[in-house]
């Protein structure tokens, strides 16, 4: 029934000091389709591959606006993501009511981190089975955070989570120095190219299966910064972007060099 005695619940340490239920929850993230996020000096973008259950069904949404200035991309259990998303929306709204301005992105991310951590320390609870990329802008500029089921949250320059996301991460690592000075359009294109790296063979980006989300903090002529609200683009609104990366040489830049597959890694398990 179980792989070992220590993986029944999230309140039992293994003799090595690991909590298997949390590690298994992290596996659930790898079941979700891939999402990519990148932050530059002026923008934070999220791009995602959507999946449909069958040919005639609709596609599952991957990007969700949280507040004017923040959006998330999800990989894993969608219903868990909705719980976190609702919580984040409420917190942002509450902050806006109390302080009359946008919630700093780090504050928001720390809140879901704390919430998720509790689920890893109390019996009868389970960790969230979803990973998030949180992109937003605040007074400090654009930010990108990764959230994991363990409650771990880290600020990234760029990141990818979900199925086969290692390929996308490899692309991002190769191009990491370019992102800071990228403009809005170029940043989205980098995201889409990273996404393409993670596609299974014979599949490609289409207007049906691709989502793009952008938030920005752009300097205007009088020296002040203006927030470009987080907005999700689907269908025909992403056609031009997809087209613009379509003629990249097969598989995009630096193809076929995935350093280890995202899946198939096989977890080490106590004997």
């Amino acid at each position: 029934m179980f792989r070992n005695n220590y993986d029944n619940d999230s309140v039992t340490f293994s003799p090595q000091g690991r909590i298997f239920q949390v590690e298994y929850a992290a596996e659930a993230v790898k079941q979700g389709s891939v999402v990519v996020g990148i932050a530059s000096k002026t923008h934070a973008v999220l791009v995602a591959i959507k999946r449909n259950a069958e040919e005639l069904s609709s596609y599952q949404k991957k990007l969700f606006p949280i507040d004017e200035h923040v959006g998330i991309a999800i990989a894993g259990l969608t219903s868990d993501a909705r719980v976190l998303s609702n919580f984040m929306k409420q917190q942002c709204l509450g902050h806006r009511l109390t302080y009359g301005r946008n919630m700093p992105v780090r504050t928001l991310v720390d809140m879901i981190g704390s919430k998720a951590q509790i689920n890893t320390q109390h019996y009868g609870k389970r960790p969230y089975g979803v990973g998030l990329l949180v992109a937003g802008v605040d007074e400090q500029g654009p930010h990108l955070f990764e959230f994991q089921p363990s409650g771990m949250t880290e600020e990234m320059v760029a990141f990818a989570i979900g199925a086969r996301s290692q390929m996308a991460r490899t692309y991002l690592e190769k191009n990491i120095d370019k992102f800071a000075d990228c403009g809005r359009e170029e940043l989205v294109r980098h995201g889409l190219r990273a996404l393409k790296e993670s596609l299974v063979q014979d599949r490609e980006l289409t207007v049906d299966n691709t989502s793009v989300g952008v938030a920005g903090a752009v300097k205007v002529d009088d020296g002040s910064t203006k927030v470009e609200p987080f907005q999700v683009y689907d269908q025909q609104d992403v056609a031009a972007w997809i087209e613009s990366v379509a003629d990249d040489k097969e598989g995009g830049a630096g193809a076929g060099e995935g350093e280890g597959e995202g899946e198939g890694e096989g977890m080490e398990v106590d004997s």
Binding site: V11, F13, S14, P15, G17
Partner: peptide, 21 residues
Amino acid sequence: LANSIFSPDGRNFQVEYAVKA
């Protein structure tokens, strides 16, 4: 296998495993 359980020689193993973390 569970927190707060004493072993016959008076140890709480779950705490010791937490130290491993």
